[in-house]
Design a protein around this nucleic acid. Structure first.
Lengths: 207, 207
DNA sequence: GACAGCATAATCGTATACGATCTGGGAATG
DNA sequence: CATTCCCAGATCGTATACGATTATGCTGTC
């Protein structure tokens, strides 16, 4: 139910309560409560008497987002690696392998699979709060990452980085893993940054 | 309305919906929506058919909490200091001065005032998301900080640290400010840690 | 033809109502 | 006397209903 918003909907979309309610076979009340939860996380914004809308992200906000991820995720990774069991490793590998094959129709860019991979690693850290924070940060940029990933034909080049990261986790090489994660995030951040700044100057031209 | 939960209520307290509703002169529905927002932030937990309860924090979770703050808050501070206007500085000073004099009845430990001070600095960074994250982290440990601060007679010893931090902000000395913040958080973290571990072993004795 | 003004439809936000679930205490039983 | 069962009160979660607010399209006027 909440998963529908993890990057699947475009910014600016209005969440019609009656529509969601009838499509899910419930009344507006549980729908509104779910929307309020998402709004509290910043994935949605309630405007008075107008309902909930998926907010647009400025380039500055995206930059903030990735900077936060680049300070929080290393902490998760650092603590996760020594704790990763064989099952955790297998789970992460599974998330990776599910990626190229069955790029499902609702996730053509493999964005969900990508996040499941990172998540599978981070859960081993035992840091629920930190994982939640990162998950929100990831979700709030997801709509944009999806936009430019879909158009640019997929993020298959980052698969190598994922494999290398998984290998580092397996061998317990924390320093190497942290290094890989940092470049991984850095590349994603710059890619999104050029996409957003392009979009912003384009919109300044014809608002 | 949400402010009632910013550390004012003890863990384990059940949020009775009818009670809140009638005390605020509204029905349960807006109350439930507010509770859902808080639950999304982890400040509350909904248990099926039992309502919302303020969750207890383990020592490990408190440790995670402060570790996150110690990686996020420096980023906020680093970006805030060069941007702080004269109004921002005055706002921070005001929050400090309001602290010792009028320790209000609902905030005997000056915890609210303490947070307003830090917040007044961080808002200058322009990082809304990061500020929100830190605010949640602060709020979720607030009930415990309140417990040991109230009993130990107040955190007047940290006023010096606050003054020094404010001075560093004024002079634009980022390195010094970061150092002060780190020790500030470190002290708070260790104090809470001994309090919680004490509490946990005491509860192990008679569960 | 463009634009202000109004009527109508769509949508939101919340009060009320009601079935479902949980809690606590007393009666019945071994 | 301890234990189990059951019922009444309390509380939750959600469907329905309705006033309030906003969007939309039409009409009349300049």
């Amino acid at each position: 139910m909440d998963r529908m918003l993890r990057g699947a909907l475009a910014p600016g979309t209005w969440m019609r309560q009656d529509e969601l309610a009838s499509s899910m076979g419930v009344s507006k009340i549980p729908v509104r409560e779910a929307l309020q939860r998402l709004a509290a996380l910043g994935l949605l914004r309630f405007e008075p008497n107008r309902g909930a809308v998926i907010p647009a992200l400025t380039a500055a906000e995206a930059d903030e987002n990735f900077t936060l991820r680049r300070v929080v995720e290393p902490e998760l990774l650092r603590r996760a690696i020594p704790k990763m069991s064989i099952v955790d490793l297998a789970g992460a590998e599974l998330a990776l392998n599910a990626d190229p094959g069955a790029s499902s129709d609702i996730d053509p860019s493999g964005l969900e699979a990508n996040w499941r991979f990172h998540r599978a690693i981070y859960v081993a850290s035992g840091w629920e709060r930190g994982l939640a924070v990162v998950e929100i940060l990831h979700a709030s940029v997801a709509p944009y990452v999806r936009l430019y990933t879909d158009s640019l034909g997929g993020a298959s080049d980052s698969d190598d980085e994922h494999l290398a990261l998984l290998a580092a986790c397996r061998s317990g090489d924390v320093a190497c893993a942290l290094d890989l994660l940092d470049t991984h995030l850095d590349q994603a951040a710059t890619a999104l940054q050029v996409f957003l700044t392009d979009r912003e100057v384009r919109e300044d031209g014809q608002p």
